[in-house]
Each structure stands twice: as C-alpha cells, then as structure tokens.
Computed example of a mutant assay.
Amino acid sequence: MLNDKEFRAFQEGIFKIYFEKYIEFKRGKGEKVTRSTLIRLKTLNQELTLACDSLEISREVAEFILREREKESPASRGLRISDFRQFSAFLRSLGITSYEIPRKYMKKVYVPFRPYIFSEAELGSITRVADQLRQGIRSQTHRLVYPVIIRVLIGTGMRIGEVLSLKIQDVDMANQLLIVYKSKNNVSRYVPMSESLSATIAKYLSRIQNRNEPQQHLFISPYTGTGYSYDAMKYMFKKIFSIAGIRTPQGRLPRIHDIRHSFCTASLNRMLESGMNLYTAVPILAAYVGHVNLSDTERYIHLTEHGYSDFITKESRLGSLIPEVCDEN
C-alpha cells in the first residue's frame, strides 16, 4: 500500500485507484518507485483527470499528453513517455480501454553517464563499516541485516530491489543458490553463491526469528514488519559510504547500483584475464545478472581494459542478426 503522503498525491481523479494499484504492482515486482517517479505519476494523473470524462484513454488524449513540450529535455520527455506507456499497458491488462503507445514515441535517449566503480579495497571498507555499525543504530536487526545485504550485493551483482524482494523460500542452501522471481523485464533466474556468501547466509538464517516461515521476506524491517524499502536502503548506504570516506571524483556519494556496475566490470575483467573471449564472456555475464538484451551488458565493456574497440568493430558486422529488445524502463 502507499503511505499517507504518497496516497494524498493521488486523491483526485477517476484513475487514482489505478495509479495506487500500478505502484503496488511495480513494487511487488521488486522495482523501486522513487520520489521523482511518484511526482511524474502525480502529474500524469492530473493530466488524465482533466482530459478524460470516463475510464478510457483515447488516441486523441494520449497524443495530447505525449506532445513535445517547450524547454523539455529529451531525457525528461523519455521518462514521461515511458511512464505513460507502462501505465497504459497496465490498464489494458485489467481490461480497461487505453491507447497503445506506438513505437515511434519510444526513442532511445543517450544520457552521458559513467558509474562509480569501487576498488576491492573500497568494497572491503564498506563491508567493515557495515560490520561495525553501532552508534545511531536504533535496532539490533539493522546490525544483523546490513552486513548480509552488502555481501549479497557485492558477491552476486543483484539489483537492490531483487535483494529486498527475496523470501526465505528463495534461498536454496543445498545447492548454494538464490532464486530471483520475475524481476526486471519479468526475468526469473538462479543466482549461484560462493562458499563464503553461502556461509554468511546460513549464519544469518540461523539467527533470524522467521526462518521457519518460507513466505516471509528474508530481510524484514523492524519498523514495518515487512521487507525494507528502497528509501531505507538509500539512507543507510549513504551513511555507510560516508563513514567509509568513499566519494566519486565529482565529490558525490556513490549510488547503491554502482555496486552492481562494479560486480559486472570486475567479473568481466576476470573472465577476460582467464583467456575467455568477449563473445563467450558477455552472454554468460548477461545470463547471470538477468539481462535480456546483450546491449545492457555491453555497457560494462567500456569500463574494462580489454578489447572494447575490437568488440565494437566486430559487432558492427553482425547487422540485424541480434534482434533488438525494447527497454521496459
């Protein structure tokens, strides 16, 4: 359910209840719904309230909302179109008539971005900080949970939403696997764990109260009685990064997702250093981290020291042999 503040943002309009259901649906899949996303959805709700007389989104209404706007950046427009397209598809899945956004609107927008890549020493530092959480931590549960969450992120490259969505039943200790159900792009997969991570998870399971309740979240917030929120993670990880003294070259604190970038980059480097070629390594890495499109994994190649220009040159000869997949986000 939305909290009181979030619910007030959608108090008016015939689509209000469907925005609430849509947000619950996204969170149920383990996707983060950030404050900026909520603001965009609130604006979309207001526009639909003014434009629609009934619970139906016509082509005319959709094209009016999707029109180009003065001084709007390509990135902002791309996010707005993506929000509308996904919400429209959600309505159709419920049997509500809503215009299907044509492909001409779904243009890829290039946004210059370079993630922060943690060194092994820095990853060790943030792990130690998590292990030593003492002052200012109101709950003993936090001191138990965060060291494990950090090790799962570092050791598997999973998305934070995937980690927070894990249930007790998703841990297969016999086969040293974590099971991810219907994550981004509706992909489910098995995530192998190392011996050390398996030992960490086993110890954690032995210490938590809900270990015999398979449907319960693996990591339960002591404040809500359910899984941790992404906002809670952002707050604590910023604190951990700050205590560890880790900042980007621009002076900002890294993002949680930068741990995933670091995992992918380090894994790709290790595979290449072992003698594996890029055309073998990239599909393996893509399957492990849950990418449905190889181009998602190719983003990590420029962060390695190996053969990027050679890969791009050879890839250009493939032409249409590799089908494109529309990015759901």
Rank of each mutant, 00 (worst) to 15 (best):
S221F: 01
A286I: 15
I137S: 10
V145E: 07
R207E: 11
K107W: 10
Y204P: 04
K167V: 00
M106D: 10
S54R: 06
E315G: 07
G245C: 12
A89P: 13
E195H: 05
Q250A: 13
G290I: 12
K203R: 13
R128F: 01
S274D: 11
P222L: 01
S188G: 10
G136H: 11
I179A: 08
Y204D: 09
R143S: 00
E68A: 03
Y190C: 10
S274R: 09
E24D: 14
S295M: 11
Y190M: 09
E72T: 01
S206R: 12
D310V: 10
N185K: 12
L164Y: 08
A121S: 10
Q209H: 07
Y279P: 05
K203T: 03
Q216W: 01
L197P: 04
L268V: 09
P147R: 06
E273D: 15
L177C: 04
S76H: 11
I149Y: 05
R317D: 12
K239L: 06
R77S: 02
T200S: 05
R80E: 05
N269Y: 03
I57E: 00
D172K: 14
F113N: 08
R151H: 00
I23W: 06
H257K: 10
S316N: 08
I57N: 01
F118E: 03
S183C: 03
R159G: 06
V325I: 11
T37I: 11
G28P: 08
Y204M: 03
V180D: 12
V191E: 07
E122P: 06
K107R: 15
I301Y: 01
I149V: 12
L278E: 11
Q140T: 04
Y110A: 13
F237L: 07
T37W: 11
L133Y: 06
Y181I: 02
G28F: 06
M173G: 02
S198D: 03
M233A: 15
L153I: 01
P323E: 08
K182Y: 02
K182H: 08
S320Y: 14
I256M: 01
C326A: 11
T97L: 11
G225I: 15
E47M: 07
R77V: 00
S262V: 02
S58C: 06
G30N: 12
S320L: 12
S188Q: 08
D296W: 13
P249S: 04
I101H: 09
E24L: 04
Q209M: 03
V171H: 15
F10E: 05
S221G: 06
F10M: 14
V282C: 07
M106G: 03
